[in-house]
Nucleic acid binder design. Structure first.
Lengths: 233, 233
DNA sequence: CGACCCCTGTCATCCCCCTGTCACCTGGGA
DNA sequence: TCCCAGGTGACAGGGGGATGACAGGGGTCG
């Protein structure tokens, strides 16, 4: 079982690497957000410290979730109610507050893996969906670089715009409800009444020049569509 | 979503029932281990207090796990490392120590359900029971993509039309009463006298070009039928 | 200070859902 | 065989919810 440990503190990282190795895991430890995103696709599960210096923790969590569906446990010193709730809503499977007991953390890792290993293989992810670039028509979305190219030319999307597009691209063709998208990207479902999601979807359509790239499923949500064709009737 | 709450303290139970009901869950609350085991099979998820008077909590947890694989969260005052680790190892998906914040507990319930419920996205209608696509004749219904294809060509159904078809497709050949369909999709039985259901069934038949795809059971309801091609005059 | 991004509010449009009506079909009884 | 009653199919029209387009304020970062 290969773990990705995202932790900037050397002493903490060392302790966790030792504990994980004792239980038979191989570990890649990274200390920066960019490295975490780069290696996310290799991980079979992720331990994430939200206190990295170079990127907001919640933001990193959302970006990881956009490219990687592996079990993920947040391990952090942030213990506020808002932190915990937002972390869980943004896609974390569990949330452990420092200081913690190593044995408990290991037990929680096992509990999460118990749920994700046998059953969750249902969705056929793992081919090119999670790690590598996703292409539809002449549009290419590269999660590692956070870039989008249309007909070979790079398009500059804002953070939210890219998040929405990448989230949909993680499972091409699958329909995601408004609630699900807001929950995963914004970490908050109560924005359902807001116009934010619509605005950013419109931004992606306008900047890419491919109105069909994100397809509206009226009354439900959005899905990644074909990029080079306009929708039929 | 139907919850089983195992809690002997009335005040705590009342607070949790209220919180769960506010989030749309139905709750059965029991205060004794024997009742918990009796109702375990109905539960879609379980909240378990380990401090029951009539049976050791860990033992109850193991017995519940023997008869029920639903997501289970331990909610208890026992905060020792040994308690937590044993609880998780005995099959709990999460372990929350009293006193806890209600919002956090709800977020943890959602996080666990996200992993165990394949249709975590939105309503539990379209793709709830069926993991994969359903095919009958040359018609294929894909719950993940919310799409329907006839002879390989995609047919665009509206939300209600798709909901009705997907509901019937979840159990091919089984007859569903009008009441049941209205209850599950509209959440309202009192539309029985309305023509809505008929209209949407007609819509599916017309758009797919397969009149036999949904078969009428006169005086009762509808069922998914064979999607034979239209050899019309 | 300026640029950029995100969120919110408003307006207009679209089309989906519901309803009402009529006609046809089915099944039972005389 | 004929008649009747209830259920269903077909169709059209109104209302309202959902979405797209746009503009403005607030915040952040360089």
């Amino acid at each position: 079982m290969h773990a990705l440990l995202v932790e900037d503190d050397d002493r903490m990282a060392h302790a966790l690497v030792t504990a994980l190795a004792q239980r038979g895991h191989t570990v890649r430890r990274v200390g920066r957000a960019s490295d975490a995103l780069q290696h996310a696709h290799e991980a079979e599960f992720v331990l994430l410290d939200l206190g990295l210096p170079d990127l907001d923790g919640l933001e990193l969590l959302r970006r990881l979730r956009a490219v990687c569906d592996a079990p993920l446990i947040v391990v952090t010193a942030r213990c506020g109610e808002r932190d915990i709730v937002q972390g869980l809503r943004a896609g974390a499977d569990d949330y452990v507050v420092k200081p913690f007991r190593t044995v408990e953390l290991m037990a929680r890792i096992d509990a999460v893996r118990r749920r994700t290993d046998p059953s969750s293989g249902g969705k056929d992810i793992g081919g090119g969906d999670t790690g590598g670039p996703v292409r539809t028509g002449d549009v290419e979305i590269d999660p590692a670089a956070r870039t989008v190219t249309v007909a070979g030319a790079e398009v500059r999307l804002t953070r939210r715009e890219y998040d929405v597009l990448a989230f949909l691209a993680a499972r091409p063709g699958e329909v995601h409800s408004r609630e699900e998208i807001l929950d995963r990207i914004w970490g908050d479902v109560y924005l359902t009444a807001s116009r934010s999601l619509d605005v950013h979807v419109a931004g992606v359509r306008a900047k890419t020049g491919r109105p069909g790239l994100i397809r509206t499923v009226r009354g439900f949500g959005y899905q990644l569509g074909a990029a080079d064709q306009d929708d039929g009737p």
